[in-house]
């Protein structure tokens, strides 16, 4: 019996498993894009609607060199990030207010349920008329779509914090602010992070829909424009870029998670 050797074996088997999974992941990626290219060239799928990776790539290079892609992506990214931050922040602040005043939370409960059930994008036209067609209304769309669900989830987390932590603080004579800062908020960080992950996706929905409705700039605008002039290569390109950015945002949230939660 050799513990070191067994440990080595165990480690190498782990490494082998990881390598295999990575291989499958790359395989799916390659199969997807090559069959998309193949099907499109052989016209097994309509190349006018589904375009093809090479066409999307050519358009990408072209739009990149004339600078339009950068400005469109920049606009959308800016709106989404801002909408995401505002939505999460306001939702958390609202949740804190509800925790602060149990009476307020009981009073507002049915309204939260209604607001949560309502499809927020349906408010789009009203928001656009109220804030005017431009940045503010699109950012509002990105934010409003995640505020209520953030409020509900974070408030629930606040309430589920073990009351014994509060008991400890109470015997030290802690004020309500201190209880919030020392126990409620840090204990709820895991939940807040997981709502961040959900909100990344939601903000993109809000912003893209917002751009569908008004904008003359941004990736949502490119999608709508491509659709109107029947340039589906442009639609595909915008979709790809959204996918990449959304993934990056998600990864950043995970990075934050590792920084914030030591447990």
């Amino acid at each position: 019996m050799n513990i070191d050797q067994l440990h080595h074996q165990y480690k190498s088997s782990l490494k082998k498993e990881n390598r295999l999974i990575r291989l499958y992941q790359i395989l799916i990626f390659l199969v997807f894009f090559s069959s998309w290219e193949l099907f499109s060239r052989k016209e097994w799928i309509d190349p006018l609607i589904f375009s093809s990776p090479t066409k999307v790539w050519q358009l990408f290079m072209q739009k990149l060199s004339d600078g339009t892609l950068l400005s469109h992506s920049g606009v959308t990214l800016f709106e989404t990030v801002l909408g995401f931050i505002i939505g999460t922040l306001l939702g958390t602040v609202l949740a804190s207010l509800l925790w602060w005043s149990p009476r307020l939370s009981k009073t507002l409960d049915p309204y939260l349920v209604i607001l949560n059930a309502m499809p927020k994008v349906a408010l789009g036209p009203i928001i656009i008329v109220a804030f005017g067609p431009g940045f503010p209304s699109i950012i509002s769309m990105g934010a409003i779509i995640s505020i209520i669900i953030t409020t509900i989830v974070v408030y629930t987390a606040f309430r589920e914090v073990d009351p014994n932590y509060l008991k400890v603080l109470q015997t030290f004579g802690a004020t309500r602010t201190q209880k919030f800062r020392e126990a409620i908020l840090p204990a709820s960080f895991p939940t807040i992070i997981s709502t961040l992950k959900v909100n990344v996706g939601l903000s993109w929905v809000g912003v893209v829909v917002g751009e569908f409705l008004v904008s003359a700039k941004g990736l949502g605008y490119l999608i709508i424009y491509g659709f109107q002039v029947f340039n589906f290569t442009l639609v595909m390109l915008a979709l790809m870029i959204i996918a990449v950015f959304a993934t990056i945002m998600y990864q950043l949230v995970e990075l934050l998670e590792r920084k914030l939660i030591k447990d």
Binding site: N164, Y165, K167, Q170, T171, G173, D263
Partner: peptide, 20 residues
Amino acid sequence: NADSDTSIGYMLQQDYLFPW
């Protein structure tokens, strides 16, 4: 008056140390 001073120390069944 528990809210205004710290003349009382309270130990619970479990430690309830703050994990963070």
